[in-house]
């Protein structure tokens, strides 16, 4: 990075570098350890996991957890719903975000200023949870897939990021020249700008897609029909609610056999637990390293404009 090779590091610099590497190493370790633990726990015997014998590498290797997950219908229905929500939601988001960002990136667009203000206001003021819920209910979207796809389809922040991309990467002269040649705005947008915008479309698809994949809150608010639940809601039942139910059950007095049954159930849950964490995060985890530079690019374009 720096041209420090020209002049040798002083002793204080060497001590500093030593501390630095320890700091970075520690940071990496803290981030990595829970992730490795989850992977190991998902293929270890529940007894070893719960007793603390398994702390880094798998102990009592078995795939029982994954076998149970494979037969767990709710998870796979949730998976299908999540794929559906992610694809359709991302498409709606892109359909609204990209054209709008292009229009307000045009310096000759008369409506640019008021529309930008119209958007920015919504970043600072909002009606809040309850009025939004009532609106969705009055529109008849409650308990339908539309409630997951539409009401949160657009983030103004993403529109502004996309706008910055258009302004900084697509030469205005090129569009002007096309205009002189008699191209309409639609033609400029579809034939010239869109073909040059693959990077920003990828970034936006990733931002919206990952957001949709990981979201549970909209489903919690808008859906009652369990058949429409996305994966994250199914996970919530397994990871969060089941745990709490058992927590309250152990507090009351229960017969010995019931306690025993609860015990084995608890262990089973513990093993599925780590497996479902992996199964649900797998698509994002696999996609992330390949597309890391796109994600980073998205953050950076956003920071240009503050």
């Amino acid at each position: 990075m720096h041209t420090s090779k020209l002049i040798k590091d002083t002793p204080t610099d060497r001590i500093f570098l030593f501390v630095l590497y320890i700091f970075i190493g520690l940071a990496v370790l803290i981030v990595l350890y829970p992730l490795i633990y989850i992977i190991s726990a998902s293929v270890s015997s529940p007894l070893a996991v719960n007793s603390g014998k398994m702390w880094l590498w798998p102990v009592g290797f078995n795939l029982d957890g994954y076998k149970v997950i494979l037969q767990y219908g709710d998870i796979w229905r949730g998976y299908m719903m999540t794929i559906f929500y992610t694809i359709s939601g991302t498409m709606v988001s892109l359909f609204i975000t990209i054209p709008c960002a292009y229009a307000i990136s045009r310096r000759d667009f008369a409506g640019k200023k008021w529309f930008t203000n119209f958007m920015l206001i919504t970043m600072f003021l909002s009606g809040g949870l309850i009025p939004t819920y009532l609106l969705v209910r009055n529109l008849g979207m409650l308990n339908t897939v539309w409630a997951i796809i539409i009401p949160n389809a657009v983030s103004v922040y993403n529109i502004i990021v996309t706008k910055s991309f258009f302004q900084s990467t697509i030469p205005w002269e090129m569009q002007e020249a096309a205009k002189v040649d008699g191209a309409s705005d639609f033609q400029i947008f579809f034939r010239i700008v869109l073909p040059l915008s693959a990077p920003i479309i990828a970034v936006m698809a990733l931002f919206y897609g990952v957001g949709q994949w990981n979201d549970y809150f909209n489903s919690l608010v808008y859906l009652q029909n369990k058949n429409l639940y996305p994966l994250q809601m199914v996970l919530r039942q397994i990871l969060v609610l089941q745990d709490m139910q058992q927590g309250s059950a152990t507090g009351s007095t229960i017969s010995q056999s019931a306690a025993q049954a609860a015990f084995s159930k608890e262990q089973l849950v513990a093993v599925i637990k780590y497996g479902v964490m992996i199964v649900s995060s797998l698509p994002v985890i696999m996609v992330y390293p390949l597309l890391q530079r796109y994600f980073v690019k998205g953050v950076l374009i956003g920071s240009l404009k503050g």
Binding site: V28, V31, P34, L35, V210, N214, Y216, L239, V240
Partner: peptide, 17 residues
């Protein structure tokens, strides 16, 4: 790569963890 990764873990998985 490692330090960016947790950003992609969902809230539910985080809560479960």
């Amino acid at each position: 790569t490692v330090t960016y990764a947790p950003n992609f873990i969902s809230v539910v998985v985080m809560g479960g963890m």
